[in-house]
Computed example of a mutant assay.
Amino acid sequence: MDRQARIYIAGHRGMVGSAIWSLLERKGFKNLIGKSRGELDLKNQDDVIQFFKENKPQIVIDAAARVGGILANNDYPYQFLMDNLLIQNNLIEASIKYDVEKFIFLGSSCIYPKLAPQPLNENALLTASLEPTNQWYAIAKIAGVKACEAARVQYNRDFVSLMPTNLYGPNDNFDLETSHVLPAMIRKFNEAKENNNATVTLWGSGEPMREFLHVNDLALAVEFALTNTLPDNLYNVGTGVDLSIKALALMIQEVVGHKGTIVWDDSKPDGTPRKLMDVSKINALGWQHRIDLKDGINKTYEWFLNNQNTFKTVKIS
């Protein structure tokens, strides 16, 4: 891989994009391109086309998306469907139009059916119904996977899709209304600790099983896809190990040092019963995760404490 190649990282200021940017900088890539939301509206096709025309990226990494937890997905289904469709469609179309050499599309494990056999294999895609609470985001990401596959088939392009499991790490969203479960727990337990170890109420039964991948491990998977020609279009990216939400809560409670009570509100939805990724396909090619979950949570909590005064409320509009 030419370290002088022009690489556009869409969403370079988000948790995923910033981790990829930092890693590629450390690896010696010299021509990284990034634009903030204020500088480039990825939902505007004309603006995206003009950006590609002017900057001529050779490689595009699509880490831009509207993301959120169960609450945000439930409350704003239209935005989660349409915003993600617009962002990815504009990037894929411009990449085809301006002969981008490699396109790496990042999605989510939620593309797979709610009750698909575990662990989730890439072949489970489109075999049954999705989890209703995040189906809007999932449908958009499925469309992105299929658009990249179509580009491979019709135009012989090196477009590949990486589907990570639940992510966490530095620059995560810790807003309690729009965040995912792990960062939300870190913030809840920390605030309760500071409030005389107050009781923490968590959604659901705590029984669902989830898998978590540190964002720096995903960045390494992106680098792996960048520096190798992968034979297929779709790869799961994860640890291959899961735990219950209750076990996760106890782990985070210990890391934070909260000594109070946990109450489970089982009137709230659990979501998919289990989401464990089959990562044998990408493991067989040579990539494996490196960061242990508890070590990763410790590092993420340290980052949270050092940066909590900079957090902004994430608004859906």
Rank of each mutant, 00 (worst) to 15 (best):
D270H: 10
A65F: 11
L285H: 11
R187L: 07
R290D: 10
F224Q: 14
L176Q: 14
L130E: 02
L226E: 04
S108I: 08
L213P: 03
V241G: 00
K188S: 02
K281W: 03
V60P: 01
P170Y: 06
E177S: 12
I20A: 14
G169K: 08
K114W: 07
R37N: 07
K299P: 00
A150E: 07
V181F: 13
A19E: 01
M277E: 01
V200S: 05
D266Y: 14
G271D: 03
L243R: 10
R26A: 06
F304L: 13
G28Q: 13
E54K: 14
D270L: 10
C110L: 11
T261L: 06
K312E: 07
E25A: 04
G204E: 07
R26P: 00
P57W: 01
N90M: 08
I139A: 01
N31F: 06
V100Y: 01
M185A: 06
V256R: 04
W136K: 09
K315P: 00
E211D: 04
Y235K: 03
M82E: 08
H258R: 07
E25L: 11
K246V: 09
V237C: 11
T201S: 12
E302S: 06
S244C: 04
S205N: 05
A247H: 00
Y235W: 05
R187M: 02
M82N: 09
L230N: 04
F29G: 10
N166G: 11
N216W: 05
K53M: 11
N55R: 13
Y155K: 12
M15W: 06
L202V: 05
N73C: 14
L176I: 15
N156L: 13
F189N: 04
S18Y: 12
Q135G: 08
T133D: 05
D270V: 09
S36A: 10
F80G: 03
E131G: 07
R26Q: 15
E223L: 09
T313F: 14
V60R: 00
Q253N: 13
S108R: 07
Y137T: 14
K246Q: 10
N89C: 12
P77Y: 01
Y76D: 04
A5P: 00
S108A: 12
G286R: 15
P231Q: 11
P164E: 03
N190T: 11
N73S: 07
G296H: 07
P117A: 07
K294A: 10
E302P: 01
I87S: 01
I186G: 03
L293F: 04
S22V: 06
G271K: 05
L293G: 08
L81T: 13
Y78Q: 03
K53S: 14
V16L: 15
A116E: 03
A94C: 05
A284E: 09
I282W: 04
A138S: 15
I7E: 02
N195W: 00
N90D: 05
A221K: 08
E101W: 12
S244A: 13
L162S: 08
S129E: 12
V160E: 12
I59Y: 05
H12T: 02
E194M: 06
T127H: 05
